[in-house]
């Protein structure tokens, strides 16, 4: 455990504006990709990556997890890993990835 001294090293208003701009642009890119037929085969991984990037930006900068105590990081990322793992396992069980063990 550490102290909260790291807390004071906050992101500046300028950083916030940059992050917000990036979020807007990435959203536009996501929607654009959706309409490009050539990207069809890699649409799913591409969109999930972009979505994850937005997720990380909001959590890291707006929620200050990048600068904040490790304790907060643990409280969030631990449960997030469990949730994602269970979602993936369930999708596999129900054959959402096509074939696999599922199709119950």
């Amino acid at each position: 455990m550490e102290n909260s001294t790291a807390q004071h090293e906050h992101a500046s208003v300028k950083t916030y504006l940059v992050v917000a701009a990036v979020l807007g642009v990435v959203t536009a890119v996501e929607v654009a990709i959706f309409y490009v037929e050539a990207l069809e085969p890699i649409l799913v991984p591409l969109l999930l990556t972009l979505s994850a990037a937005k997720f990380a930006l909001v959590v890291g900068f707006f929620m200050h997890l990048k600068y904040d105590s490790k304790v907060f990081r643990g409280l969030f990322i631990g449960p997030l890993i469990v949730a994602v793992a269970i979602i993936l396992a369930m999708l596999a069980l129900f054959g959402v990835f096509g074939g696999g063990a599922g199709g119950a």
Partner: peptide, 20 residues
Amino acid sequence: WAFIGSECMLFGSLLITYLV
């Protein structure tokens, strides 16, 4: 933060339902 961790499982379970 702990509550948000718990909410990850709530929305995760709803997302499972939607995707399944």
